[in-house]
Design a protein around this nucleic acid. Structure first.
Ligand SMILES: [Zn+2]
Ligand SMILES: [Zn+2]
Ligand SMILES: [Zn+2]
Ligand SMILES: [Zn+2]
Lengths: 132, 132
DNA sequence: ATTAAATTGTTATAATATAACAAAATGTAA
DNA sequence: TTACATTTTGTTATATTATAACAATTTAAT
């Protein structure tokens, strides 16, 4: 469950845009789309993105430098994220799987080190792209 | 086990540099370090990096835009990678763990989809940084 | 009201990565 | 070993992603 945060004006504008996008959005595409709402500079976008990532409302897809809204109630504050990425159509889905998240949250390396955070990206072909 | 590849001149120069670096290296730091060897342009570096990643001799740490040499005989051609990253000193270690790699290689999402490739990045504090 | 903290606006610049095209080196097969 | 295709290299320019620095404004607690 996400802690509730009151988003600021810029954060809300940018979150709404990402949230209604069917694909991950890149920062400068976001910028282009919100210029009519008065957000003119890259830094305004990046600041909002940083905050939204920090509070877990969006996630960054590291391999794509792109951002998607979180629709997964089990990922807490961006500390435990997993995604599937289609290498053809670039569709990205957040994975919500108890077994996986438990396995990773409890994973210890050979020195017994436990980690406070992880990000996992799976790559393959989505259903649509597989049949083609 | 890695398939053997004969590296080209630029690939070898850049691999040697990364291989002997104790930390992940960034592209423009690599460029700076190989300029005395005649590699003058970013594209020369990126081309070598692309190829080295493709054949599994190095890996890209996506969250850091940096590259490390592979020292893990079980990760094949960059298709299955896992790293631990210290959030203070930025030390990166490639994780070699049979249980983990089997678990992830066999992971199926709720639609029964299996993936051909994954990258996992764990974050936390390394031993040294933990005691401070 | 006072003050501290967070957010915003703005300009400039840094850092990361690719496009496009020509030349050279390398591999393959008559 | 010549002819041809493929890969690699060199080079210039440019695109994309992200942050520095600083002033002004808004918000939230005292
Ligand atoms: Zn999420
Ligand atoms: Zn697809
Ligand atoms: Zn490896
Ligand atoms: Zn450390």
């Amino acid at each position: 469950m996400h802690k509730e945060h009151t988003l600021t004006k810029n954060q809300q504008i940018i979150f709404d845009l990402i949230d209604k996008s069917p694909e991950p959005m890149k920062a400068y595409s976001i910028l282009f789309n919100v210029q009519k709402k008065g957000i003119k500079a890259p830094l305004q976008v990046y600041r909002a993105l940083d905050k939204l990532v920090e509070i877990g409302k969006i996630h960054k897809i590291e391999s794509r430098n792109a951002f998607i809204a979180c629709h997964n109630s089990s990922c807490q504050m961006a500390k435990a994220t997993a995604f599937s990425i289609c290498e053809i159509c670039e569709k990205v889905t957040e994975i919500s799987n108890d077994s996986l998240s438990k396995y990773l949250a409890n994973f210890k390396d050979k020195d017994g080190m436990k980690y406070s955070k992880y990000n996992l990206e799976f790559f393959g072909l989505c259903k649509k792209c597989k049949v083609k």
